[in-house]
Design a binder for these strands. Structure first.
Length: 234
DNA sequence: GCGACAG
DNA sequence: ATCTTGTCGC
C-alpha cells in the first residue's frame, strides 16, 4: 500500500551539494574493517542497464550460491535515474532502483558485490559503502575502471595485486582475476575487510574477469530493459 | 587554469 | 551507461 518505491517518500538530494552532504553524513556509519563472513553461503550481484534514450533504467539483483555459483534467486526493478550522472555521486542515480530490487528478494544475501567502488571514492563513500550502510549487509565494490588513486600494474598472473593508493591512504586493490587480462579495482564497502573482499572476488572469478555475480546481474538487467522497451511504463 | 572523472 | 564490425586468441 505504501511503498512500491522505497525511497520516494524521503528526502532525496536534488543538487550536488546536497548529495555530497549525504555522503559526508553517512560515511562514519560504514564499517571498513569488519572481517565479514569467510565462507558466505549466498552472494548477490547488482547492476543497472540504461535505455539508449533518456533515464529509463532496469536494476537487477542476482543471488548466487557462493559455493557452486549457481543462481538461486533474481529480482528486477524498472524505473528512472534518480539523479544525473556525476562522477562521485553515481550512487544517487541508481540506489532507489537497486534497493527496490533488493526488497523484492525473498532471501537475504550474505554479501553484496557492487558494480562500482566503495572506499575508493573522492569522499571515501562510493556506491558499495552507501548500499552497505543502507541495507546493513556486508558489501564490497568491484570497479572495471578507476575513479581515484594511483597504482603499479600487478603481475600478469591471476591473483596478483597491487595497492590502490590515494594520497597516503590505501583505498583498495588492483586485482588480476585472469592471466594477462585487465585487472579490476576492489575496494571495501561495509562490514568486510580488503583481504576478504579480494578473496571473495577471486572465488567469484574462476573463469571470467568480472565476478559471476556481476555478470549474471548484467545479463538480467539488460534483458529486463529489453522486455520493457516496447511495453510497460511509457 | 587544465585535465580527470565509477556507470 | 550506450552507440557499433571486425578481429585476434584460447
Amino acid at each position: 500500500m505504501t511503498g512500491t518505491a522505497p525511497m520516494t517518500d524521503v528526502a532525496w538530494p536534488g543538487t550536488v551539494a546536497e548529495a555530497e552532504a549525504v555522503q559526508d553524513r553517512l560515511r562514519p556509519l560504514a564499517d571498513l574493517v569488519g572481517p565479514g563472513p569467510a565462507q558466505p553461503r549466498t552472494i548477490a550481484g547488482l547492476d543497472v542497464a540504461y535505455a539508449e534514450d533518456g533515464d529509463r533504467l532496469a536494476a537487477a539483483v542476482t543471488v548466487l550460491d557462493a559455493r557452486t555459483l549457481a543462481v538461486l534467486e533474481t529480482a528486477v526493478s524498472i524505473g528512472r535515474a534518480a539523479f544525473p550522472y556525476v562522477p562521485g555521486l553515481f550512487a544517487f542515480r541508481e540506489l532507489p532502483a537497486l534497493l527496490d530490487a533488493l526488497g523484492r528478494l525473498t532471501t537475504t544475501p550474505e554479501l553484496l558485490v557492487c558494480d562500482g567502488h566503495g572506499l575508493a571514492h573522492p569522499r571515501r563513500f562510493g556506491l558499495a559503502c552507501h548500499l552497505g550502510v543502507l541495507t546493513g549487509l556486508p558489501a564490497i565494490g568491484v570497479g572495471k575502471t578507476p575513479l581515484v588513486g594511483r597504482w603499479d600494474p600487478p603481475a600478469e598472473q591471476r591473483g596478483a595485486w597491487t595497492a590502490l593508493r590515494d594520497g597516503s591512504e590505501t583505498v583498495g586493490r588492483v586485482l588480476r582475476t585472469r592471466d594477462g587480462t585487465k585487472p579490476v579495482f576492489v575496494s571495501v564497502g561495509h562490514r568486510m575487510g580488503l583481504d576478504n573482499a579480494c578473496a571473495q572476488v577471486l572465488a567469484l572469478t574462476p573463469r571470467y574477469r568480472l565476478p559471476e555475480t556481476t555478470r549474471q546481474a548484467d545479463r538480467l538487467c539488460r534483458l529486463a530493459l529489453g522486455r520493457t522497451r516496447s511495453s510497460d511504463l511509457e
